[in-house]
Design a binder for these strands. Structure first.
Lengths: 217, 217, 217, 217
DNA sequence: GATGAATGAGGTTTCATTCAT
DNA sequence: TATGAATGAAACCTCATTCAT
């Protein structure tokens, strides 16, 4: 089926070599991970624009010098974080779409997808936010990661759309639906403050998915 | 009529004052505007994270000192820019939804809305991108501006949905649709590079709008 | 009698010309005065180190540009302020010492002097504080003003000491006594917070004056 | 024993930390000390108002960035300097008053105290000047340090006064005497230029101490 | 006589980055 | 492997200062 853009080569195969060329051992990897965790944690609170190496190091309980043993700059740590996410979730997101019996109960399937996607996006909001920003700003490294992360799910939706009597272009439908999920998750807070209940939100989104992809009124 | 969240008080009514407390005259306002223009221009090229006062000043043909007469920092300039956008487009976006004959030709109406929104979002992408980021990061000042900008259109869609036999909750539907438009516009480039034609995109989006809001299969 | 250092030429005869050479008219003088008042007012709150032209101008309800019409810098405004004080009080301080019947009731006389001096110093604390600092730091312009301000009173005390059976060198005694008064006034707050009542303070100081100058046990 | 205000908790027990929160090691402490020395040195020449971070750094043979590792601003360096003085001299000043045989030879004792105090104040004039200014301007941090520095000596004098037949309130007497010493030391130069010999000065001051504290005519 | 407006100049402050330990 | 410590470089920001109106 349509495979364009589905570069299945995961971007994250980059080696984890430390700045001095040595391959980090167990302790080193732990430090690296602590730095990534610190980065993620800070993103909950701090605007991406204000995220600094010093802060990450302090949050991780280590020194800036150590940070530079593992990442050349903040952006790279972000890339690593995003990439980890891609590695970890590519499969799961794909299965989220695939493992449904769309024929038997499309409504139920759509609900599961909506629910799962929203939850995924909400849980990883801080990182995904930056991933999105990077993509929008045209940074190809971020874009590739984003593509890889969503490729499985998007392709699955495309295939599904193509196989059903979906009312429009399968690819476009899949792309738009996935984007919508991302956006809704990111602005969920705003929508709920505006008086929309979480349940209504999921219903609405599920409805759009079903009608857009499977086409059953 | 659903009025929740429709704070019609525009956030931007704060009086314009220079940093020393004085109200700027014509010359000052012109300078201020040049600074805003420069900021917008730079955002086309430079990542928000890398936007510096020095650069804005240079681009505007002034000195940093002058920048600080009008804005306390880059973020504030961004707020002003976003706010101007809100002031300028609140009405137009509302009309974009309202001035359609949804009954006679819902498809045509939906297309117009999709087209108009996408174009608006595309034209002002750099500023809107930051506005979105700020909102997502929880900055209330950005959020208020975003709310105001979209309030008219969203409310209009809500009313429309409420008046038609839309398949779900009117508010949720309107909110989701508007968000989708924003997202699609922002990631249009990615989608098109992925092989989706602009036409297909508009068709798909228009279809979703129609089915979600007006509910005509 | 001892006249050393008693340069009776008042330092403050400097002309009030504005920076552009014109002699200010009534309106100009009023502005100048407002600037001085503002300076004095700010010194109540702001550390001398942090006193800026911009702040003075704002406090006076004018612009920095106007400030520069009357004073070349903050220090000069301070000098003017101190000088005004010298002009205004030189005589009074002298009389404070002179107009007493030291022979009839030295205790009463000493009390009056103590009281009067403390009050004077307390009332003008902010300016006198800077005057003192300038003197201590060796700035001759401040020193001259300080000398002029205190000359009359110090000389009077010196003469008094010389005429009485004061236990030490008249000049030294007079100088030390005046200094003590200044210091006590400046640190009154500290002393009172330490549990010393104002009355005890005045009594003690008066006692020292009497014993040091007039020498009556 | 009069204990009012004798907060024996030295203000300077705060632990030394670099700006990034780490506890400095030997090398760091040496640098910190060099910065303090540089500050003290400059104060001999430069008015407090004109003391800048850049200059201190240069004088210390480092960069401004290094300064900021140890102090947030010039004022804090001054506080540290004053505090060190307090730590170093609190005891000595106390002993200066205590280690005298006031009964056997009050005049000799008073002379020693006068001499010692004047010398102390003269030697550390630049720092003490700023300490005094800070106190006068109401800065509590400076005030606390000043209190601690003088507490021992002042209390000793108070006790002495209480035990002798001093003519006034013991506390007030002690406070005033100590203040007088400070002031005389600071303005010694002026007084001497005015024709008062150093010897006369010490005599006068000693006389005042004796008569005020011990009360022996 | 007053002041909006602009800005040069310079101090402040941060931060990424390195190096020796 | 980790990190104290130092610092160049760069951005920030303020302020004194000027000038045209």
């Amino acid at each position: 089926m349509t495979e364009i853009g589905t570069s299945d080569a995961s971007p994250g195969d980059a080696d984890l070599r430390a700045s001095d060329g040595r391959v980090p051992g167990r302790r080193g990897l732990a430090t690296r991970q602590r730095l990534l965790d610190a980065t993620r944690t800070l993103l909950d609170t701090v605007a991406y624009r204000d995220l600094k190496v010093v802060d990450i190091a302090r949050e991780a309980g280590t020194s800036p010098a150590t940070f530079y043993q593992y990442f050349p700059d903040v952006e790279s740590a972000m890339l690593a974080l995003a990439d980890d996410l891609g590695q970890a979730w590519h499969e799961d997101l794909t299965r989220l779409v695939t493992n449904r019996d769309w024929e038997a109960d499309p409504d139920e399937a759509a609900h599961r997808v909506a629910d799962g996607m929203l939850e995924f996006w909400t849980r990883h909001k801080p990182v995904l936010r930056v991933l999105d920003l990077g993509s929008m700003e045209g940074d190809l490294r971020f874009r590739d990661i984003r593509t890889f992360l969503l490729a499985g799910a998007t392709t699955a939706l495309t295939d599904l759309a193509a196989a059903s009597d979906c009312p429009g272009d399968p690819q476009a439908s899949a792309g738009v639906v996935v984007g919508m999920l991302a956006h809704v998750a990111n602005h969920q807070h705003g929508l709920e403050r505006w008086g929309v209940s979480h349940e209504d939100l999921v219903d609405t989104v599920a409805g759009i998915i079903r009608r857009t992809i499977v086409g059953v009124a």
